[in-house]
């Protein structure tokens, strides 16, 4: 377990020292969301109507941009070989890297969401549920993303392929995530949606590290 947490701490430390990674993803998220009012017009009713969807799609795309960070650098500098050879099972090693990715790349997005939500005229009830839904559902983004990242690691122009592979698989999270927020705004029960999101996260937690590990074994061959 010690090696597991050590690896998470290393990845977080690397992300913190590189710094720019955090701010770039956050800036992208903010800019992408800002494009919507500029695109559809500043009417508050429309913005409130599309707000949950805009934020979720923005979060999805921002997360997508960070996926290559999970394994690419380690692959390029040979660290991945060493990680594969360590006594930590490869599935757990993969999971540690996924957790680190979620903490460093996805959690900041969740934290900044309230500000963006306010700018989209989202009611306060919606904002809390938005954060809750992201918190419960976003692990799926890192988990499924890691499988795609593992499959495309070491590829030239892997980024475009990665988005083609991963985005269709993100659709259920998007649907339930947005549905939860819309339910909350309409003062309907949002429990079922959150539970479905939690179910997706748990399912992905079981399957994705195994699939990503298989992809990595292939990548280092």
């Amino acid at each position: 377990m010690n090696k597991f947490t050590n690896l998470i701490i290393r990845d977080i430390r690397l992300a913190v020292r590189q710094g720019s990674a955090f701010t770039m993803t956050l800036s992208f998220f903010v800019v992408a969301v800002t494009l919507y009012p500029l695109g559809v017009g500043p009417e508050l009713n429309i913005l409130a109507r599309i707000g949950p969807g805009v934020l979720w799609v923005g979060a999805l795309l921002s997360c997508l941009l960070t996926l290559d960070r999970i394994f690419q650098a380690d692959f390029e500098d040979g660290s991945l070989d060493q990680l594969m050879l360590g006594s930590l099972p490869i599935e757990l090693m993969t999971l540690a890297k996924i957790i680190a990715h979620w903490l460093t790349s996805v959690v900041p997005l969740i934290l900044i969401t309230p500000i963006l939500a306010v700018s989209l005229n989202m009611p306060a009830d919606g904002i809390w549920v938005m954060m809750l839904a992201l918190l419960v559902g976003s692990p799926v983004l890192s988990l499924i993303g890691a499988v795609g990242a593992g499959l495309t690691v070491g590829m030239r122009r892997g980024g475009v392929l990665l988005s083609l592979l991963v985005l269709p698989l993100y659709i259920p999270v998007l649907i339930f995530g947005v549905a939860a927020v819309e339910a909350a705004i309409a003062v309907l029960p949002m429990g079922p949606h959150i539970l479905l999101l939690a179910g997706l996260s748990l399912g992905a937690l079981v399957i994705c590290p195994i699939a990503a590990a298989a992809a990595l074994r292939l990548a280092v061959e």
């Binding site: 690397l14 040979g78 060493q82 006594s87």
Partner: peptide
């Protein structure tokens, strides 16, 4: 078996910021 060897590849497996 994995504990019995140390593999040093072409690449340095070092992180520049550490």
């Amino acid at each position: 078996y994995q504990d019995q060897f140390r593999y040093i590849g072409h690449q340095e497996a070092l992180k520049p910021v550490l």
